[in-house]
Each structure stands twice: as C-alpha cells, then as structure tokens.
C-alpha cells in the first residue's frame, strides 16, 4: 500500500521460492490475458469494423498482414502465431483454473503435470492450427 512505512520489514514473497512450471503458467495466464484483452480485442474489432466499412477498408486491414498474393507477411506471422499461442495458453490454463477451483489437482505431482500440460497443449494446438490453415 502507498501508506506503508518504507522502513518496516516485509515478509518473503515469490523471490524465495524455486521456480517451477506452476509459477510460469500462473504468470503466463496473466500475461496472455493482458495481451489478448488489449492486442487481441483491438485486432478483432479492427477486423469487424474494416469488414463493415466495405471492400476498401477491409483491403487496408488485410494488406497490413499479407503480401499481394494473399500469403501472410512477417507481421501476419508474428501477430497471428503470437495471438493464437496466447489464446491457446490462456484457454488451457483457464480450464486448469476451473479444475483447481473445485479443490482438485493440488497434489505436487498432479499440479506440476497439469501446468506442463497447458504448455504442451498451447504449442501443439498453435502448430496444428497454422499447419491446417497452411495445407488448405
């Protein structure tokens, strides 16, 4: 709090713990949530507004992310892969949170496995998503 006297000691916090997958997934949930709610929502609304604006405004939107022949350019790949990776990570981590909310999955081993599973899911789902789109 802003009113805390600076000279008073504070209790140990995250810096005293050894890092594990559960801590990484926890902060990733917040980070990906932040990215999705800012970059992701602006992108979605930009897409919808550009499509509603007509052919010209949609072409402007599309040209930012694609080459003239329709393939994704560097911005398209970085933003596209970044936002889908964030989405799938937040999605998997969110489902894990719903499970944890029931009081299940707090045993050390299961908790660690669950955390690692969200990371595995987000990478595999992102790769599958783009490979499928690329093969069509």
């Amino acid at each position: 709090m802003a009113s805390r006297t600076p000279a008073r000691p504070i209790s140990p916090h995250i810096q005293v713990y050894k890092w594990g997958p559960h801590m990484l997934v926890s902060i990733l949930h917040r980070a990906t949530g932040g990215v999705l709610s800012t970059v992701g929502s602006v992108l979605l609304v930009w897409f919808l507004a550009a499509l509603a604006g007509g052919e010209g405004s949609y072409a402007t939107f599309r040209d930012v992310f694609t080459h003239d022949d329709g393939r994704l350019n560097v911005i398209g790949y970085v933003v596209g892969i970044g936002i889908t990776l964030a989405l799938f990570q937040h999605m998997a981590s969110g489902v894990r949170h719903l499970v944890l909310d029931t009081g299940a999955g707090f045993e050390l081993k299961r908790n660690k496995t669950g955390a690692l599973a969200t990371l595995l899911f987000s990478v595999v789902a992102t790769a599958a998503f783009w490979l499928y789109l690329g093969m069509k």
Binding site: S41, L44, V45, L48, A49, A52
Partner: peptide
Amino acid sequence: GLGAVAIFAILKIAFG
C-alpha cells in the same frame, strides 16, 4: 467503447 464498435460493426453487416 471498443465493444460498442464491435457490436455496431456486426449488426451493420448482418442487417446490411
């Protein structure tokens, strides 16, 4: 604000 733009855009397309 952003939500209003999104809903308006969706309705404009759907009813246009």
